[in-house]
Amino acid sequence: MNLREFDFSLPEELIAQEPVFPRDACRLMVLRRKDETIEHRIFRDIVEYLEEGDVLVFNDTKVLPARLFARKEGTGGRVEMLFLGEREGRWECLLSSSRLRPGHILTLVEDPTFRFRVEGRGKEWWYLTPLFPCEETESVLSRFGHTPTPPYVKRKDVPLEVYQTVYARVPGSVAAPTAGLHFTEELLETLRRKGVEQVMLTLHVGPGTFRPVRTERVEDHRMHEEWFTLPEESAQKIRKAKSEGKRVVAVGTTTVRALESVVRKTGSIEAFSGTTDLFIYPGFSFQVVDALITNFHLPRSTLFLLVCAFGGTAFMKRAYEEAIAKRYRFYSFGDAMLIL
C-alpha cells in the first residue's frame, strides 16, 4: 500500500491556531459508514447521536509542561528542549540544536542553577542527565515548563489548561488527546443524564503522534511505543456493553489504539498495563470500537491512516474534501468528526 494514496492538499489557513470557546461550540461532521452520508452539526449536538447504554471511552492522560528553554554553557546559544520521559536516570529529549555533542552542558534560562549534561543521541532523540537529583525534574517542569503545543501551532504561549481535557488526571503526555478537548463538564453531565456510560483509560501520548511516515510502503512504518493502562472497572463496563449489543465509542485515536491493543495482547477485553506500538491502517480488523470521535488529521499521517481504516479510505477522502470545501478547522485545535 503506497503512502501517496493518503495524501491531500490542505490550505494552510485551515490549520486552527486557537480552539473555539466554549469547547463544545466547534463544528461536528457526522459520518455514517453504512450508507456513507455526511451531516454538519455543532459538537454539543453529539448528544443526539449517542444512546442510553453506549459507552464513551476517554483517555485521561494529562499533558506535562514539557517544553523548557536552556542555553549552551560557553557559547550561550539558546536551545529548546522537549522532555519525553525518564529512563534509568536519563531523560529522553527532543532538542532544537543539532550542533550539540556528548559532554555539553545546558543551563536553564529561568534558573541557571539547573543544569543538564548531554549524554548522546539516538535515532530520534537526545539523552540528557540532570546535574541535580533526577526526581526533581518533574518539579522543574511544573515550575518552568511551557505547553508542548504541536509544531503546526505557531503560538508558543498557549496556556496549559487550554491544551488539556477537562477530565485530564494522570500526568505523562507530551501532546493532548485532542478529540477530548471538545467536551465540557456540562456536556459530560448531559450525557450522563441520558444514560451514556463514561469510562477512562490512560495512554501517555508520545512524540510519535507527530512523527511523519517516511516509508513509501505504509506497511514498513514502525510506531513509537507508548505506555497505557485499562483499569478493571473500565474493562468490565466495556465487556458488558459489547455483550448487550451497545456501542463502544472511542474518544480519539489514542483510545482506539489502546482498546484494540488490549484485545490483541490478552485475547479479550481485560484489564491491562503495558506498552503498545500498534499501527492501524486500512485492512485492520476492529474488534472493540464501534464508533469514533476524532479531529481532522494531517495528510500522510498515521492518524489519517487510522481513520481511513475505520471509516473506509474512499469515504474518508470524500469527507475530507467536503471539510476543506466547507472550511472546517483542522488539527489539534480544529473541529471534530463523529464516525458511526
Results as ranks from 00 to 15, higher is better:
F228Q: 02
G195Y: 06
E260Y: 12
L340N: 06
A250D: 07
L230S: 11
L191S: 11
R300H: 03
A168E: 03
E233Q: 15
T294W: 11
L94S: 04
E51G: 07
K154P: 05
G283R: 04
K265H: 07
L56I: 06
V174C: 05
E36Y: 02
Q198L: 06
M337N: 01
D111T: 10
E12K: 08
L338E: 10
S243H: 11
L340W: 01
L106Q: 12
L68G: 01
K34G: 02
T294N: 12
K237Y: 00
E12W: 01
L201G: 10
I15S: 00
D7I: 00
A179N: 12
E260L: 05
Q164W: 02
M81G: 04
Y281P: 06
R33N: 09
G74K: 13
A271N: 00
L64A: 01
G53A: 10
D45H: 10
D335S: 02
V205K: 08
V20F: 00
G195D: 05
S98Q: 13
S273K: 15
P102D: 06
L106H: 09
E185M: 04
M316G: 01
E233R: 15
K194S: 11
P11R: 01
T313K: 13
A175L: 09
E110K: 15
V199I: 03
V288A: 15
P151G: 00
P102M: 03
F272P: 15
D54P: 11
K156D: 04
P151W: 00
L64R: 12
E185K: 14
I105K: 04
G145T: 01
R117T: 14
E322H: 04
T313I: 03
S301N: 13
K326D: 03
A179D: 11
D335W: 02
R101G: 04
Y281F: 13
R23A: 05
E219T: 08
T37K: 10
P151E: 00
V170W: 06
R4W: 09
A66H: 02
L141F: 06
R264K: 15
D335I: 02
Q164P: 05
P282F: 04
K156V: 05
S97A: 10
A323H: 03
R117M: 14
V140S: 07
I324F: 07
L305P: 09
A271G: 09
E189P: 01
H182S: 12
R101C: 05
E136G: 06
I38S: 00
K246A: 13
Y49Q: 09
E73I: 04
M223T: 10
Y320M: 00
P22Q: 03
E161P: 05
T294K: 14
S142L: 13
I339Q: 08
E80V: 02
F272D: 14
G53W: 10
A241D: 08
T294S: 14
E216A: 05
H224C: 01
F279Q: 13
D157M: 00
T215C: 06
L259H: 15
L68Y: 00
R222I: 14
F43Y: 07
L160N: 02
E5K: 15
V57K: 11
G245Y: 13
R329K: 03
